[in-house]
Amino acid sequence: MSIFVDETTTVVVQGLTGGQGRFHGLRNRDYGTKVVAGVTPGKGGTDVEGVPIYDTVAEAVEVTGATASFVVVPPRFACDAILEAADAGISLIVCITEFIPAQDEALTYNRLVREHPGTRLIGPNCPGIISPGKANIGITAGDIALPGGPVGIVSRSGTLTYQALHELSQQGVGQTTCVGIGGDPVPGTNFIDCLEAFQADPETRAVMMIGEIGGSEEERAADYIGQHMDKPVIAYIAGVTAPPGRKMGHAGAIISGSQGTAQAKIDALREAGVTVASNPTEAGEMMVEIVRGLG
């Protein structure tokens, strides 16, 4: 099994007619994802390589029954796009857009919680989600992932996620689902949401978690793991040497005062019984060991 997306997931791409939307949307379709519609206001009735375009998500959902949305629109329109998808009854929204104003992001998150409690948002500012062999929504290169499990991956960083996928795949270790939750301050989906789902997924037998400086989601995840998980977790946290007060590439990757340091996260995870690797390669090697040990 997989979490959040699988072969039955049908996807509408908001922004399919744009450069990025077209590139990634069609790549997702080529991967085997059921990309059933695109939405661009004013371009309804046209198509992108056979994928019909609608003016609104509501229309796209009515006609195609899409259950998930891939939001690839510029930052100033992204939050409206997310809320439009939720209003149309979409239950999973993946938003890769970077540079959304923090106030918009916080408002949108809370509106989803209040008005659409059944809708899950992944991102913004994330690489997306892939259940290898089943569905790929986002910008992950599908060919670096390997179907069949048993590893679940959840990560705040794009390239580190790709690296993790690649290293496992090269050793013949597959993945159930890999979720990039993104590097923004208010992610729609947290580590804990993914850990919970992985814990409940019978095919996921071990989890790799990739965190970074900023906020305290890793600490909260550590609490959760300590109390609720019996599957092995390998973690890696980037930013041990990051200087305080500087945004390290991601809006959320910042040490504020003594808050959000990598060391605090590493300590919390170790305390919860998580094996914390000192670099991404080591994390991959440790995971391969664990999986071999599972028999």
């Binding site: 960083s157 794009g158 390239t159 590097g183 041990v240 390290m248 590439g249 990598a262 670099n279």
Partner: peptide, 16 residues
Amino acid sequence: ANGAGLAMSTLDVVNQ
């Protein structure tokens, strides 16, 4: 490096 996470991780590994 390409990617914020990978760049941060590279600093850490150099330090290591």
